[in-house]
Design a protein around this nucleic acid. Sequence first.
DNA 1: TATTGTTATACTCTATAACTATA
DNA 2: TATAGTTATAGAGTATAACAATA
Lengths: 156, 156
Amino acid sequence: MYLMVKQSSERVTRPSSTACEAWRLVSELFVALRERIPALAVELDLSPQQCHVLRSIEPGSKVPMRRLAETLGCDASNVTGIIDRLEARGFVARRTAAHDRRVKVLAITARGATARARIIARMAIPADAIAHLSEADLDLLCRLLRRALGHDASTD
Amino acid sequence: MYLMVKQSSERVTRPSSTACEAWRLVSELFVALRERIPALAVELDLSPQQCHVLRSIEPGSKVPMRRLAETLGCDASNVTGIIDRLEARGFVARRTAAHDRRVKVLAITARGATARARIIARMAIPADAIAHLSEADLDLLCRLLRRALGHDASTD
DNA sequence: TATTGTTATACTCTATAACTATA
DNA sequence: TATAGTTATAGAGTATAACAATA
């Protein structure tokens, strides 16, 4: 929650200390997720970034190189090399788009989709801290997080 | 919470669907944190990994190179280069440890501590999703997360 | 012998700038 | 002229293997 505070003769919003504390606790959970990625990448013989790319390409969809660059948050020039390596190993395929011959669209291959499924499954495994909560606590946590993220099923 | 399930004639624990859902929601929050780091690094004219190193060295403490490698989760050989660059710019200092002349300990400099404080302050700003919850929801969220993380003040 | 930190090497990811082919 | 993708380049992070100094 944001509180209004006086600061250098202007009203400025700043997060409440409870919000900061909640965020600090969430950040602790983040450690579990971050440590998981390199190990998963090694297991699949991929780089962490390659895992990220495969996660970003839904089977059946066609993703322009440019759009992938935006998703990855990196310069478009990098995508060329990243996709070169993934394509050489048969995880994705490049094709010229029908409507605009400048554009190249990416599709995930069967092999890529298999790796993708493993990545997604692994990332979906809850951190231990979450997993050992009671069902009642988990249910409450879900409801709070849905509200935070604006997935308003019911305002409750 | 873990449920016991029969699987290939062995009892195996697997997370409940509520736990998976909670984890999925938590993972959505991670996006906000992950996108923050590169921008922060650019602003401080540091790399993301250099930011991570500075966060890992508490002012006043002496951190052996080896320990830093474990904290970063990378091979010790990488730490040499990472610290070379940080030391050349005056963010950290290397000194031979008193008790064992093989060991080199790292200390953060005044300049390093200033950058570190900015990094920590920035990371501590709650994601918008968290910040716009009510105080009551935030309080509940904190209690749930403290319980999850084993910060048992009271079992409630 | 074992450990700490370093060096050498090779690969990936990163940004910037210049290029090509299309539009 | 603007845009999509590529290439060239330089720098940072990564792992592996071999090494010197020290324990």
